[in-house]
Design a protein around this nucleic acid. Structure first.
Length: 372
RNA sequence: CCUGGGGUAGCCAAGUGGCCUAAGGCAGGGGUCUGUAAAACCCCCAUUCGCAGGUCCGAAUCCUGCCCCCAGGA
C-alpha cells in the first residue's frame, strides 16, 4: 500500500500514481478542502462528477466538533461524510498558526482555546496522530508548527520543533500499528531560508516517511520567494516519494508547483473565492458581483464543461450572488473546483505528452491576475 | 376648509440652537481572499436637512409664509 510510481516526467514535473486503500491517486492532483467533513456547498456526488479524487479534512475542526471519537463511531470520515475516494487530514498544525492569540506553543505541544466556545485544549504530536487515527483518512500529516515565513528566529525554532515532533508522530503512528491503512507524511518547514529548509529536509527524510510535504508557504511571503524556496527545497526530497505543497493554491501557483516537481496540492481558495463571489477563468479571476456582468449572456467561462457553465449565464449567476442565494455558492464552488481539477488533468496529460513546459508557458501567458 | 402629526441620501432613520463640512442600517459601487475562527472582511456613497425669507456671533434644529404627505373632523 502507498507505493508511489512516477509514470512520466517532463523537466522536473512528474506524473505518478499513489496507491491508497481507497484506490489509486493520479498525480499531480489538487485536493478540494472539506475542513468540517464537507467541501462547503458541494456534494460528494458533484465532486466525483468534476473529477475530484482526493479530499482534505481537518483534525482540529473535527476534534472540536463533532469529536473524532464520534466520527470513529460512524466508521471514520469516509463513511461519515459519504466520500469513498482517497482522503487526507491535516494535523491541526496550521490552526496553531492561524488561531493567533488563542494559542501557546511549547516544546511538548500546543495549548489553545477553542474558537467555538473558548474552552482550553491541548494538542501534542501524539494526540494529533491519535485523532487522525480515529478519523481514518488515507493520508495523515505530522503535527507541525507553521510559522510566519519571514522571521528567521521564529522560523528556526518552529523548524527544529517540527522535526522533533515528526519523530514523535512517527513513533505514535507505529505504536498504533495502522501503517497499512494510513500513510503518515512528514512536513518540511524553514520559511524562506535555504539553510533551514535544508536542515529540515535532512531531519525529515532521515525518518523515511512515505511522503513529504512542503509546509509554511503561501502564508505571507511573495510569489517569488515561494518559487525560490520550491526551487531550492523540492530537490532535497526523495524523488520516489510523493511531494505535497500544503495550502496552495491559485491556478498560477499550481502550474508553478507542478513545474518544480510537486505532486499534491490542497487549497481553500477555489471554494472560498466562490463563496465570496469570485470565479476563476483561464484569463484570470473575475468578481461575479460586478455590475458589468448584469446583462452578460455568456457562461462564466466559454468552453467550460461544468454544470454551472453549461446551464447558466453570467447575468443569472450575478443575480444569484446579489440576491445571496445558496445556489450562487454551489455553482461558483463547482465551477472553480472544476477549473482547477481540469488544469491538473491537463498538466498530467502534458507531462505524458512531453509538452508540459509549453503547456505551462501558454497557461501562464493567458492567465492574468487582473483580467477583463 | 379645520385640527393634529410629519417632510434629513435611492429607502428606513438618529439628531430638536454651537462637539453636524449630519449617526446608523439597507440598497448601490469597488476591493481583498492560498494546509478555512471566512456564505467573511475592507473601502466608497448628503458641504447638506421640502422651498423662500427672518431671528441669532451661530439654524437640520427657533420664527413667518408657501408647497407636499398622513390621521381625525367638517
Amino acid at each position: 500500500m502507498f507505493e508511489f510510481d512516477v509514470k512520466a516526467t517532463c523537466g522536473l514535473a512528474r506524473a505518478g500514481t499513489l496507491q491508497t486503500p481507497h484506490g489509486p491517486l493520479l498525480t499531480p492532483v489538487f485536493a478540494p478542502v472539506g475542513t468540517q467533513a464537507t467541501v462547503k456547498a458541494v456534494e460528494p456526488r458533484e465532486l466525483h462528477e468534476i473529477g475530484a479524487t482526493l479530499v482534505l479534512s481537518n483534525t482540529y475542526h473535527l476534534y472540536m466538533r463533532p469529536g473524532d471519537d464520534l466520527v470513529a463511531e460512524f466508521g471514520g470520515l469516509h463513511s461519515f461524510m459519504g466520500w469513498d475516494g482517497p482522503m487526507l487530514t491535516d494535523s491541526g498544525g496550521f490552526q496553531v498558526f492561524s488561531l493567533g492569540e488563542l494559542r501557546q506553543v511549547d516544546d511538548e505541544g500546543v495549548t489553545f482555546r477553542s474558537h467555538l466556545d473558548g474552552s482550553i485544549h491541548r494538542f501534542t504530536p501524539e494526540k494529533s496522530v491519535q485523532i487522525q487515527h480515529n478519523l481514518g483518512a488515507d493520508i495523515i500529516m505530522c503535527f507541525d508548527e507553521c510559522p510566519p515565513p519571514l522571521d528567521r528566529t521564529v522560523v528556526e525554532s518552529a523548524t527544529k520543533r517540527t522535526a522533533l515532533w515528526a519523530k514523535r508522530c512517527l513513533t505514535e503512528h507505529e505504536r498504533l500499528g495502522n501503517a497499512e491503512r494510513q500513510a503518515l507524511f512528514g512536513i518540511i518547514q524553514g520559511g524562506i531560508f535555504p539553510e533551514l529548509r535544508e536542515r529540515s529536509a535532512q531531519a525529515l527524510t532521515a525518518l523515511d516517511f512515505p511522503g513529504y510535504a512542503v509546509g509554511g508557504l503561501a502564508v505571507g511571503e511573495s510569489k517569488a520567494q515561494m518559487q525560490d524556496t520550491l526551487d531550492q527545497c523540492v530537490p532535497l526530497l526523495p524523488a520516489h516519494k510523493p511531494r505535497y505543497l500544503m495550502g496552495v493554491g491559485s491556478p498560477e501557483d499550481l502550474v508553478n508547483g507542478v513545474a518544480r516537481g510537486i505532486d499534491i496540492f490542497d487549497c481553500v481558495l477555489p471554494t472560498r473565492l466562490a463563496r465570496n463571489s469570485a470565479a476563476l477563468t483561464r484569463r484570470g479571476r473575475i468578481n461575479m458581483r460586478n455590475v458589468q456582468f448584469a446583462r452578460d449572456h455568456a457562461p462564466i467561462e466559454e468552453g467550460c464543461g461544468c454544470y454551472a457553465c453549461t446551464h447558466f449565464t453570467r447575468g443569472y449567476i450575478r443575480h444569484l450572488v446579489k440576491a445571496e442565494e445558496i445556489l450562487a455558492h454551489q455553482l461558483l464552488s463547482l465551477h472553480n473546483l472544476n477549473m482547477l481539477l481540469t488544469l491538473m488533468r491537463e498538466m498530467r496529460a502534458a507531462i505524458f505528452d512531453g509538452t508540459f513546459a509549453a503547456y505551462a508557458d501558454e497557461f501562464l501567458a493567458n492567465y492574468k491576475v487582473v483580467p477583463h
